[in-house]
Amino acid sequence: MKPILSARRLEKRFGAVVAADALSIDIAAGQKVSLIGANGAGKTTFVNMVTGYLKPDSGSIALDGMNIGRRSPRHVAELGISRSFQIPQLFIDLTAAENLAVAVSGTHPRALSFHSPAEAHGRRDKALELLERFGLADLADRPISELAGGVRKLVDIAMALVRRPRLLLLDEPTSGVSAEEKFATMDRVIHAVAPDAATIVFVEHDMEIVSRYADRVVAFYQGRILADGDPRDVLNDPEVRRYVTGGAQ
């Protein structure tokens, strides 16, 4: 199958730290790929390079065959790649619905209107529809500053979904969520993303989440790929157990 995303020999260094070392990876459409690895292994750097926040020192990144390695985050978003963040990046003083309305405004190729109300022309309806998918409709008019961390995480992911992305990158979607609630949160994310049938790449430290939701796991170690394949095989790989999971499954 032709990959939707193809990275070839990506190199990225921060001084003496090697964040990407000849990294090559193909991601096929429809996959749910989990990126695992210890802190500093290069997972978030990879996400940042794919979404245009960081430029690779060398190598190429192609989306459906188009090189996107030098594009800005805005252009990458326009091409169909969206992301959420480990620490939710929201507009704190705005309400949840207003955050989503800004995201909806960003989907139009035309210039932003200086007279059309921000939540008119279906923008509020679209915002509410997305919040509803995450079970957050009754928090629509609450400022983000009044919402708890778990809810902010879901709003952050909802904003990434507004563009109906072809590739969705989620950076630690369950970090900061309690052990009892992580599956409920992840179920909600997967359920909410399903209608848009996006290819999902998620960075995750929790191996229970990885084994339950991923259909492919890529283990990172010091900017390189240590193992790549079926979750059971990767999580049982001796090197992955030694350097990444520390024996956890």
């Binding site: 979404t51 926040y53 800005s72 985050p73 805005r74 978003a77 326009e78 969206s82 992301r83 990046q89 929201l90 507009f91 704190i92 003083d93 705005l94 955050n99 800004v102 995201a103 405004s105 960003g106 989907t107 932003l112 904003m159 990434a160 507004v162 563009r163």
Partner: peptide
């Protein structure tokens, strides 16, 4: 207002 609060996120949403 969104630019004021987080001008990186707004770029990720496709707005300059």
């Amino acid at each position: 207002l969104a630019v004021r609060e987080n001008n990186l996120r707004i770029e990720y949403l496709g707005i300059s």
